[in-house]
């Protein structure tokens, strides 16, 4: 019995859920300030077009 769970594979699922969420937290923290960049011309063009599109909705 693992944490009261009968099956090792269910226990693994239980632990891995939490582990996967912790992986996401760790990744987010480590890379918190990485890969930031000022918007490119393509980004701004995309945003302007996106605004026009949402006007139509």
């Amino acid at each position: 019995m693992y944490l009261g769970l009968a099956d090792f594979w269910v226990f693994m699922a239980y632990i891995l859920c939490i582990g996967a969420a912790l992986l996401c937290v760790g990744y987010g923290l480590i890379n918190w300030n990485r890969n930031g960049s000022e918007p490119t011309e393509a980004d701004l063009k995309w945003a302007e077009e996106s605004d026009k599109l949402s006007e139509k909705l």
Binding site: C24, N35, G36, E38
Partner: peptide, 15 residues
């Protein structure tokens, strides 16, 4: 805006 926002979003999304 950039990949940095996606990095940060991973943290919130996972939890």
């Amino acid at each position: 805006k950039s990949d940095m926002e996606l990095n940060r979003a991973v943290l919130v999304g996972g939890v």
